[in-house]
Design a protein around this nucleic acid. Structure first.
Lengths: 370, 370
DNA sequence: CTGAAAGCGCTTACAG
DNA sequence: CTGAAAGCGCTTACAG
């Protein structure tokens, strides 16, 4: 049977000892004609089932047998075919990233983090942007996950807050990890970002600088983080004996334009704020725009603090003070949790769940001039 | 055989006509117990091979038979298992995006474009960031592609310019499409971005505004686009009777910091430029920083033009004039070319290859004050 | 134009 | 602790 295959590999067929294959340059790429579990079985003189046991690290396996087979595997640089394995397992070795997030840097960082976690495990990352508001969102999500038989999916905000999506995934028995401000689910399904704390820090920072009249631009109500960041900010101010006045709050949509618009409104209020905390960096840059238009100097006339510490924060002028989230690490932890389900990866991944935001002080915040 | 499977689907077993399955809400998700090619074959009273012919749109097939089978397929919302299909085809239904690009928005847009192209085709996108400078780059690339049996890969700059990477892909017989400034390969393997033209436009724009003393910050020499953008800029200036002085050129690295540094050097030259064309937006924001530090007002004292029209362009102050590349469309075209290889997708995709950059005029460019 | 057999490369029961 | 058989859901020759 193997005979008929148009393999480019030399010899190595017909049982019996074979000369170690020429491992040219890299040593890992023994040309195109791929070596299979059957080859390894024959070469090590065991059944393919036993090779399979070695691959899957079955515990009930003679150490000697294991080592012998492993040696052959290493020698030939054999790697099992994920497709065939997936077909037999009825599950693909693919992690999905389902996102609905306008922040490109956030998504890219998260992708990197997931890939950090799967490196060397044979898993790969498949991306799936989506529109939560679309009528076919849930149907498409189910289709995607079912069809690809995904091993699991990572859900960053705001998909992570979508109850329907999580229910849909549960329906098709697809493991998921949600990344959100607060624990919305069992620990093994969560990475908590503690937005409350980040916003709390931002409040202390502004209060310590001497600001008394501060404003807040929230994200959309549909985002959990909007509420958490507001709550943390309010609590932080209170800890310093300050209050967030009702007319010092405006709702944005986590976009540049919405931040701009909201800031215009806040700056037009009688007794305008000397500092604005924006729910994310995108909106903070919108605040910059409004300040420029009003002839306000940052930070002399107006202090601005953002959230996310996205790549834009260091590039605007003046550089933006912002709350940093370890996004890449969050992606890594989320993927590790998924792998932990399969007994791969550290077991503690199932419980490690918290991530701590930290304030990065730059030049957009300073003492009030008045 | 099918009997033993713990399917949740009702009836529909044991040959013979069956009641149409309850297509609940969406109609597409008939629960977990997946329907297979065998079910369709039995239900339509043909062999599975014939069903396979319908799936793969075989031309030599009785129209009547085809319609009958297709009806059953539609009725049950049957979708072939990509894993099983891939195993038999010896090729996965996955498109890879192999990138080494620091611009997050660029990568995200490209991903979106690729997904635009594969929508409904059953293909999915798998992402693979890489480090071209890493010693194991080529080995890892080969491993990745071979192991996943990728259907094809899309290569944006600068991986697209890597001869070794293309050779490696050819070695493992993996189709690829390169996105680059100029035709580096056969048309079916290329999407050409015509950077020359975009830079030419930028030159005309600045010359028309009345600038005589203009400067250029190039990308790294290792990027083809660096040379093309410079060449186009020089030619554009020449068309207006201007020259790019040797001391008005600085080399950057397509990063914020490098743009900042290069601009400092250029602005310190005797008889400083009244306009700077940066090789990309990242570097243009660096120019902004340098201008701020020198107390130079944009555009009154210094005009700035960028390249890419990335999302940051509209958010900095003043909004940045930049050359726009239709990145999402580029991704779509690249993926279409890959699908065209399989007879899927429009045949013209094999030849359509050019993309046209366009200048987006904002407020960072104006007439020189002096 | 259509089908029965063998196979893609792996794993899951089931024996021993 | 190890193996022979059957199977995952599809397709490729090979017949007819």
């Amino acid at each position: 049977m193997t005979v008929a295959r148009p393999t480019k590999k030399p010899a190595a067929k017909k049982g019996a000892p074979v000369p170690a294959p020429k491992r040219s340059s890299g040593g890992l790429t023994n040309s195109v004609g791929k070596i299979t579990i059957n080859d390894i079985a024959r070469l090590s003189g065991v059944s393919k089932k036993t090779v399979s046991r070695v691959i899957n690290q079955s515990p009930l396996l003679n150490a000697e047998t294991r080592d012998k087979v492993q040696a052959i595997i290493d020698q030939h640089g054999y790697v099992p075919d994920p497709q065939a394995r997936g077909l037999a397992f009825r599950r693909a070795f693919l992690i999905g990233l389902v996102y609905d997030n306008p922040n490109a840097q956030y998504v890219i960082d998260m992708q990197q983090g997931i890939l950090d976690a799967v490196r060397g495990s044979g898993f790969e990352l498949i991306v799936h942007p989506c529109a939560r508001t679309s009528a076919s969102f849930l149907t498409e999500l189910k289709m995607f996950v079912q069809r690809q038989k995904l091993f699991g999916v990572v859900l960053p905000p705001s998909v992570s807050e979508d109850v329907g999506a999580c229910q849909a995934l549960a329906d098709v028995e697809c493991p998921y990890v949600r990344i959100a401000s607060i624990p919305l689910d069992e620990p093994q399904n969560m990475v908590v970002t503690n937005d409350y704390r980040g916003a709390y820090e931002a409040a202390l920072h502004l209060a310590d600088l001497g600001h008394r009249r501060v404003a807040f631009i929230s994200g959309p109500k549909s985002f959990r983080s909007s509420h958490e960041r507001k709550r943390g900010f309010v609590m932080g101010l209170e800890a310093k004996g300050l209050k967030l006045a009702a007319n010092m709050v405006a709702e944005g949509a986590y976009t540049f334009e919405s931040g701009w618009h909201a800031a215009r409104i806040l700056l037009a209020r009688p007794n305008r704020p000397t500092a604005i905390f924006a729910g994310n960096d995108e909106m903070a840059t919108g605040v910059y725009r409004a300040a420029h238009e009003s002839g306000l100097n940052i930070p002399a006339d107006l202090s601005v603090v953002g959230y996310d510490d996205s790549s834009i924060a260091a590039k605007v002028w003046p550089p933006l003070t912002s709350v940093r989230l370890p996004i890449r690490a969050m992606g890594r932890i989320a993927a590790e949790k998924l792998l932990a389900r399969a007994g791969r990866g550290p077991a503690k991944a199932a419980t490690e769940v918290e991530v701590v935001p930290s304030l990065v002080t730059r030049h957009s915040s300073g003492p009030p001039s008045a």
